[in-house]
Design a protein around this nucleic acid. Structure first.
Lengths: 136, 136
DNA sequence: AAGAATTCCTACTATTTTAGTAGGGATTAA
DNA sequence: TTAATCCCTACTAAAATAGTAGGAATTCTT
């Protein structure tokens, strides 16, 4: 799992969407102003959120986005995965030549990172979008 | 806290050092061969490990490194901090213009990342170098 | 004394990732 | 018909990471 600004922006924007729900859709322009994130960047992020069925869009004037599900049913892990895609903190297989190659020189720490992954994932699985109100 | 290959290499090398202890110091050449990490890169890493009092060095032929403390007393957090230096998963203050600036538009998710930090740090605080034998 | 093995230290470079910009097209409400 | 909005792709700039290079200092062995 990657933890980047993009993921943070996504969570911020979703939290914004959840807290400012007013019946109709909310435009990215609004979110952009409130959260101080560039509109074009938000568009990219929401494309992915939409593809991952976390938000629903309506186009045209007065268009915007609404949450696809209640905030109580959206896990933070869903959001992070949606925009950052990768699953592992550190991918041992990527650098097959150096370091851990899962073969002869077995990566001593392989299982360790697996455990850490589970730890972080567990954290994001537990927290729901709704909980952010309490935190913020 | 940053989680990079460098940190992983550091943990691997320290684990190697712990498991191959033989009384005298162990050279980076050995570790380099066993763990398949470039010697020059290891040198950089061990410089930091040494500055952080995790290993002790002896120079010259037959020189090398030994653990400064028993493996049971070295926490993984010590190792990661030593080489990767930074403490926070995502630094909100860095990008002061966009996103979270801790001011007017308060970062909704600020506390969230703090919690995550504590979570990850807690994990690395719990695990000792000695424990890696069980994991690997 | 010489040579080899090693740590020590700094600077550089290439690659990858992240962050963000740009521009135009499609759709819809007023 | 116009303005507001989503939709989509491509590009670029900046930062971080990973790794290389080269040489100096130290110590053991012969």
């Amino acid at each position: 799992m990657k933890l980047t600004n993009k993921g943070r922006y996504a969570v911020m924007a979703m939290a914004d969407l959840a807290s400012n729900a007013k019946g109709g859709p909310i435009s990215l322009t609004e979110i952009s102003l409130r959260q101080n994130i560039s509109l074009a960047y938000l568009e990219q992020i929401f494309l992915k959120l939409k593809n991952n069925k976390l938000v629903r869009s309506s186009r045209g004037a007065n268009g915007g986005y609404v949450l696809e599900k209640p905030a109580s049913e959206i896990k933070l892990s869903n959001i992070i995965y949606a925009v950052d895609e990768e699953v592992k903190t550190l991918n041992c297989k990527k650098n097959s030549k150096r370091g851990c190659n899962n073969k002869s020189t077995k990566c001593i720490t392989h299982n360790l990172w697996d455990q850490l992954d589970q730890h972080i994932i567990g954290f994001f699985e537990k927290v729901k979008l709704q909980d952010l109100a309490k935190l913020g």
